[in-house]
Amino acid sequence: MSSQTVALVTGAAQGIGRAIALRLAEDGLDVAVNDIASNSESLDTLVDEIQKKGRKSSKCIADVSQEEAVKQMVEQVVKDHGGLDVMVANAGVLGKNLPFVEVSGEEWDRVINVNSRGTFLCYKYAGIQMVKQGRGGRILGACSVAGKQAIGTQAAYSASKFAVRGLTQAAALEFGPHGITANAYAPGAIDTTMMDSEPGIRDAMLKEYTQRSPLKKIGAPGDIASLVSFLVKKEAQFITGQSISINGGIFFD
């Protein structure tokens, strides 16, 4: 398989996605970055940072839950950069912290549409492009410790991340004969702005997951970026279909 040269990272305006985009640029890849329109200015800043590292970059405003938007996003990356070798389907949302019976149909759809449908669409259109190119590739998605062991007050989120594991395995089976690997990273508690999505959740999560970890700490976005960096490399060519736990030991597979 040829060396990877062009990456697309979704949900890249902040947190884990931003760290992944910068790390891949440091590794020598050109990186297109995606997020929704409300995060456009943050993407502009990120594009500038990537370019200052000597790599080509571009921004793609798109809602990954919309099929035509994902199709056009991939087409735009190919037009701007000449191809697509690495798809990191990182975009995701956290569910509202609710008892199972209080999760509305609307809340279910909101979380599933981004986390599961969005991942499926990114895998699909990246796979189409990579097969067409005939030079292999890397497809990666965002799973979670909640995709290994459900969180009781996060029914929709847990289900969405379990779905990512199944999607990743299916993609690995289908695209493997074309030299394309498909894997997911399954983080535990990572210190990002997602922790601030609901009032008071940050302090509670920091305390709980620090106590649960044998390392007595939570993760940083750079920890996930390091794993993605390896999975993109030639040395990871024999790893596929995996959702790799990276959680400080709060859950063992």
Results as ranks from 00 to 15, higher is better:
V6L: 10
A7E: 04
V9Q: 02
V9K: 06
T10Q: 04
G11R: 07
A13K: 09
G15T: 01
I16P: 14
A21I: 05
A21R: 10
R23T: 10
L24T: 02
E26T: 06
L29W: 04
L29K: 02
A32C: 06
N34G: 08
I36A: 00
S40K: 15
S40M: 14
E41L: 14
S42P: 02
L43V: 08
T45Q: 11
L46C: 06
L46N: 06
V47Y: 00
Q51E: 15
K53Y: 09
S58T: 15
I61G: 05
I61R: 12
S65M: 10
A69G: 06
V70W: 06
V70I: 13
M73T: 12
E75Q: 12
Q76M: 09
Q76S: 14
V77Y: 00
V78C: 07
H81F: 14
G82K: 09
D85G: 08
V88R: 00
A91C: 06
A91G: 06
V93G: 04
V93R: 01
L94D: 07
G95D: 03
L98S: 03
P99T: 00
E102D: 15
E107H: 15
V114L: 09
N115C: 11
S116E: 14
R117Q: 10
T119K: 10
L121W: 07
K124Y: 01
Y125P: 02
G127Y: 07
K132C: 11
G134D: 05
I139G: 02
G141L: 13
G141M: 04
A142P: 06
S144G: 08
V145A: 12
V145N: 04
V145Y: 11
A146D: 08
G147D: 08
K148D: 08
G152S: 09
G152Y: 12
T153V: 12
A156S: 15
A156I: 00
A156E: 11
Y157F: 14
Y157N: 06
A159D: 04
S160H: 01
S160P: 11
K161L: 10
K161P: 09
K161T: 01
K161W: 05
L167Q: 07
A172H: 10
L173N: 04
L173W: 08
G179T: 07
G179H: 03
G179K: 00
P187E: 01
I190R: 08
D191W: 11
D191A: 09
M194S: 07
M195C: 00
S197P: 02
R202A: 04
L206P: 04
K207L: 11
T210Y: 07
G219S: 12
G219T: 10
A220F: 11
I224D: 00
I224N: 03
S226H: 07
L227N: 07
L227I: 11
V228H: 05
L231E: 00
L231K: 00
K233W: 01
F238K: 02
F238M: 12
T240V: 05
T240M: 14
T240N: 09
Q242V: 13
N247P: 09
N247H: 05
N247A: 05
G249P: 14
G249T: 11
F252E: 06
